[in-house]
């Protein structure tokens, strides 16, 4: 593996992560402005690539155009990884990212063509988070930090930090699903509120375990701080989003305060989920399970 390759693909992956964050903002703006069906056709908008940019069309068509750019960039990343990456699983991860964004585009199209029915908007919102998580993982796997040597950390606690981090990511994803369900009016608010309590528990537990068990590891401490920070922000934004939604429930149109809170809550939610994935991976990198270390051949260790 060439170091120059790593640097270039890592920068490209980071750029794609930034573009996808922009795409998530654009998607959240579509929903918050109730503009999802302002363009009734798909994949073209009003039968053209350049529809009249007025009202809700501005949000929906911008979302489509940014999505098209992200699809193209992901295809480039997947081809790049397939051709240049030595780690076989990384090649497939690149392909998985492309499959996810392609599936996401199809779900987006079906969301429009099926008039937001059959759970399409929720599936679209959840796959967006998975895609973002895959891209953040690729950026991490191609970083110098990931590919450098690190002293192995021992995890003596129980349950293991791996189980905790994995549980935390799973609970956060479930909360993403519940949030999307509420946002798209498929379920009431209370499951999402219960989910917030569950996320509070797992984030606190995981962050505390990272801080206490690995107090000398800068990375583990940073992971815990990021997890807590994103959750704190997300919790406050959630309260803001709920308050603004309730206080403007009778408004004739979406109001800026509701749009701002809801978009921020959606995007920070995506960052929290991506952070929880990164915590799982960092734990796996720095404190591998004993059986994994023992089973690894020298060749695998070099390519991990």
């Amino acid at each position: 593996m060439q170091p120059s390759y790593h640097q270039a693909v890592h920068r490209f992956a980071l750029f794609l992560v930034a573009c996808t964050l922009l795409l998530l903002i654009a998607g959240a703006l579509v929903t918050s402005n109730e503009a999802a069906l302002s363009v009734p056709d798909w994949p073209l908008s009003y039968g053209t690539l350049l529809p009249p940019m007025v009202g809700g069309i501005v949000f929906e068509d911008s979302h489509r155009k940014i999505a098209g750019a992200v699809l193209l960039l992901t295809l480039i990343l997947a081809i790049w990884l397939w051709r240049a990456e030595q780690r076989r699983w990384m090649r497939w991860l690149g392909l998985a990212a492309f499959a996810a964004v392609l599936g996401q585009a199809i779900l987006g199209g079906l969301t429009v063509l099926l008039n937001l029915h059959y759970g399409m908007p929720v599936a679209h919102a959840c796959l967006a988070q998975i895609f973002f998580g895959i891209l953040v993982s690729i950026a991490l796997f191609t970083s110098n930090w990931w590919n450098a040597d690190h002293a192995r950390l021992d995890d003596s606690g129980s349950p293991s930090v791996h189980s905790l981090a994995f549980l935390n990511a799973g609970v956060i994803f479930l909360q993403v699903v519940l949030g999307a369900g509420f946002r798209h009016k498929d379920i009431p608010i209370w499951p999402h509120l219960v989910g917030a309590g569950a996320v509070l528990a797992t984030v606190t537990w995981t962050g505390a375990a990272l801080r206490r068990r690995f107090e000398h590891s800068r990375e583990m401490r940073l992971a815990g701080i990021l997890l807590h920070s994103f959750f704190g922000m997300q919790f406050l934004l959630g309260i803001g989003a709920l308050w603004s939604r309730m206080s403007t429930a009778n408004a004739p149109q979406p109001l800026p305060v509701t749009i701002a809170f809801t978009v921020a809550h959606t995007v920070v939610g995506a960052l929290l989920f991506a952070c929880s994935i990164a915590v799982v991976l960092v734990c796996r990198r720095l404190a591998p399970r004993i059986r994994e270390v023992a089973a690894r051949t020298p060749e695998q260790a070099a390519l991990s």
Partner: peptide, 10 residues
């Protein structure tokens, strides 16, 4: 009946 281009139209 809704117009999503102009969300106040109901």
């Amino acid at each position: 009946v809704q117009c999503q281009v102009h969300p106040w139209m109901k």
